[in-house]
C-alpha cells in the first residue's frame, strides 16, 4: 500500500489521484466516507462499545511538487514549486508531466564558469525538458496550471525504504491499516489536502467533530548524518516514532503526550521526542479548531524529506502504527483521563 501511495500523484491542490486510491481501499471496510468541498476525505468508524471516547486521526494526502507556469517558445516548461522544495534537489532529476517523462537539469559543466559552479541555481533558472521540438508540441502535453511530481520509484534498500512523498503517505498508509479493524473508540480519520501550502485542508476537515483527542500522523525531518551534532539531528532513524513537544505551528498537548508515552511504555514500543522546533504540520490548525482540540503529532523519521529520495526505516513505520493501535485500545479500556 505504501508503494502504491507513494508512487501515485497528489501535489497540493490536485490530490484526487491519491484520494481515489485511498477511497477505493477504505470503502472495503468502512461505510461512512465522504469528501468535503476542499477534497478532504473523511472517514468515520463507530465504536461498538458504550459511551466511547472520540478520537480524530489526521494525515495529509498532498505532497510537494511543481506547477507549470509558462511554456517557452523553444518548448520548455517554466515552473514554480508547490510547497517547500530546495531547487538543489531538482537538478538532474526526472519528473512526471501528465504521464510523460521530463527532465530538469542545467547546462553542461563544460559550459559553466568556475564562479557559476559555486552558485546554487534558483528555481527561476530551471526548466522542464520533455523533448518537445517547439511551444506547440509542448502545449499539447501540458498547460500552465498542470502539476508535475518527482519521477521516483518506491525502493527497498539496505534496511530502509526510499520513495518520494513519504511525507505524508506514511500517515495515509497507517490510517488505512487502522481503519481495517474495529476499535473501542469512535474513530474519525481525516485524509487532508493542502498541508504543504499552509495547513489548509485540516482547518476545514477537523471542524464539527469535537473529538476528545486528535493525533496527527506524519513523516518528519531526520538529519542523523555523520558529522551532524547530536542536538541538530532532529530525530534518529530506527529509534521509533517521534512525538513532537513543540514545533513552529503548535505545542503538543501534555495530557495526550502522557497517554501516548504510557501506551508506548506499557507495550514496549520504542519512541523518541523530536529534538527540533522547526517545521509545522496539521496539528497547528487542528489544536485551535472549534474552541480547541487536544492534539499531538506522532511522526516517522524521514531523511531528505521534500526531495525525490525520502528515506525511512520499516521498523519505525511499524512501531508508529503499533503505537497508534495500542493507544486506541488503551483509550477504550481506560477511558478519557478527564472523564
Amino acid at each position: 500500500m505504501l508503494k502504491k501511495l507513494t508512487e501515485s500523484f497528489g501535489v497540493s491542490g490536485y490530490e484526487m489521484p491519491v484520494a481515489d486510491i485511498i477511497y477505493e481501499e477504505v470503502k472495503k471496510f468502512c461505510t461512512d466516507i465522504k469528501f468535503d468541498n476542499m477534497g478532504n476525505l473523511k472517514v468515520f468508524k463507530r465504536s461498538k462499545t458504550e459511551l466511547p471516547p472520540k478520537v480524530l486521526l489526521s494525515a495529509h494526502m498532498d505532497e510537494v511538487g511543481l506547477i507549470i507556469t509558462d511554456v517557452t517558445e523553444e518548448g520548455y516548461f517554466k515552473f514554480a514549486s508547490v510547497g517547500g522544495i530546495d531547487p538543489k534537489v531538482l537538478i538532474a532529476q526526472r519528473v512526471n508531466v501528465n504521464g510523460l517523462k521530463g527532465v530538469i537539469s542545467t547546462k553542461a559543466v563544460h559550459l559553466t564558469t568556475a564562479e557559476e559552479r559555486k552558485q546554487n541555481l534558483s528555481e527561476d533558472k530551471l526548466y522542464i525538458d520533455i523533448g518537445a521540438k517547439d511551444k506547440n508540441e509542448a502545449q499539447k502535453v501540458a498547460k500552465p496550471g498542470d502539476y508535475c511530481v518527482f519521477d521516483s520509484k518506491y525502493t527497498e534498500f539496505g534496511n530502509q525504504i526510499k520513495a518520494k512523498a513519504l511525507d505524508d503517505r506514511i500517515g495515509c498508509a497507517i490510517m488505512i491499516e487502522i481503519l481495517k479493524k474495529d476499535w473501542p473508540v469512535d474513530l474519525y480519520c481525516n485524509f487532508t489536502v493542502q498541508e504543504e501550502v499552509g495547513l489548509r485542508g485540516a482547518r476545514v476537515a477537523s471542524r464539527g467533530i469535537n473529538p476528545d483527542y486528535a493525533v496527527v500522523i506524519e513523516g518528519t525531518t531526520c538529519n542523523d548524518l555523520p558529522g551532524v551534532e547530536a542536538n541538530l539531528r532532529v530525530t534518529k532513524i530506527g529509534a521509533g516514532p517521534a512525538i513532537s513537544i513543540l514545533d513552529s505551528a503548535s505545542k503538543g498537548n501534555e495530557e495526550l503526550i502522557a497517554l501516548l508515552e504510557k501506551s508506548a511504555t506499557r507495550h514496549n514500543i520504542p519512541y523518541q521526542f523530536k529534538a527540533s522546533t522547526a517545521g509545522g504540520n496539521d496539528a497547528g490548525t487542528i489544536c485551535i479548531t472549534d474552541g480547541g482540540i487536544k492534539t499531538a503529532s506522532l511522526s516517522v523519521p524521514c531523511r531528505y524529506i521534500h526531495s525525490p529520495v525520502c528515506v525511512m526505516n520499516k521498523s519505525d513505520f511499524e512501531n508508529c502504527r503499533r503505537l497508534i493501535e495500542v493507544f486506541l485500545e488503551d483509550m477504550g479500556k481506560d477511558g478519557k483521563i478527564n472523564d
Partner: peptide, 14 residues
Amino acid sequence: SIFGVIGALPPHLK
C-alpha cells in the same frame, strides 16, 4: 551492487 541515495538537507532545517 548496492543501491543508495545522495542525501540533501530538507528546506525545514535551513
